[in-house]
């Protein structure tokens, strides 16, 4: 198993190469959490909790405010960990297909599988929003109008996407097209 790591301030790229009877080529883009933001979320939740205890001790009963405060601090922490993504992965299973995985902080993993013969070509795409531009890695699928995004949430810089794109090109290259990854770049 080899690991290649590239990183910037927001994202970390990891590469797992599992060899053996069922070789796998796994590429992860991990979100590097902003420690200041983590601290702020926890601090805010803690303050809410302390306030609720204080109110509870002051009144001597479990009031509505206490319940609401507890609920909102729990919601805050839950929403921070529950909906946010920890990492997204592209798992290349040679001669079978590509599995796209989204790993949430809650432990939930959303997977979707695309058979290799359905993939026409992986493409690095430039996207424009009203305020900024970013790159995305997409898969062109046979007889399908829409492109499939390899990473649905994370928007890593192109230098982290290039090794994944090259690996996908190598996995899906059937020798029919004349352009190689190097020429495309």
């Amino acid at each position: 198993m080899t690991k290649i790591q590239l990183a910037n301030s927001q994202y970390l790229y990891k590469h797992d190469d599992c060899e053996g009877r069922h070789p796998l080529d796994i590429h992860h883009i991990v979100i590097q959490r902003n420690s200041a933001l983590v601290f702020l979320v926890h601090l805010f939740a803690l303050l809410l909790f302390i306030k609720a205890i204080y109110l509870c001790l002051l009144n001597g009963t479990l009031g509505t405010i206490f319940l609401l405060s507890m609920l909102s601090s729990a919601c805050l922490v839950k929403s921070y960990y529950g909906t946010l993504i920890e990492k997204e992965s592209v798992v290349i299973i040679p001669s079978l297909g590509v599995q796209l995985e989204a790993h949430y902080w809650s432990g939930r993993v959303v997977r979707s599988f695309i058979p290799i013969d359905k993939i026409l070509k992986p493409v690095l795409n430039e996207n424009v929003t009203p305020f900024t531009c970013y790159w995305s890695l997409v898969l062109l699928i046979h007889s399908k109008k829409e492109l499939i995004l390899a990473f649905k949430v994370v928007k890593p810089p192109v230098k982290l996407l290039v090794p994944i794109w090259k690996a996908l090109c190598a996995a899906t290259y059937s020798g029919e097209t004349t352009d190689s990854p190097a020429e495309d770049k």
């Binding site: 430039e126 996207n127 424009v128 929003t129 009203p130 531009c133």
Partner: peptide, 18 residues
């Protein structure tokens, strides 16, 4: 027609979604 397009001769066009 939004995003990046290329025209003849490698002319790059940004169609900004405003």
């Amino acid at each position: 027609r939004s995003g990046v397009r290329y025209m003849t001769g490698g002319l790059k066009v940004y169609y900004v979604p405003w």
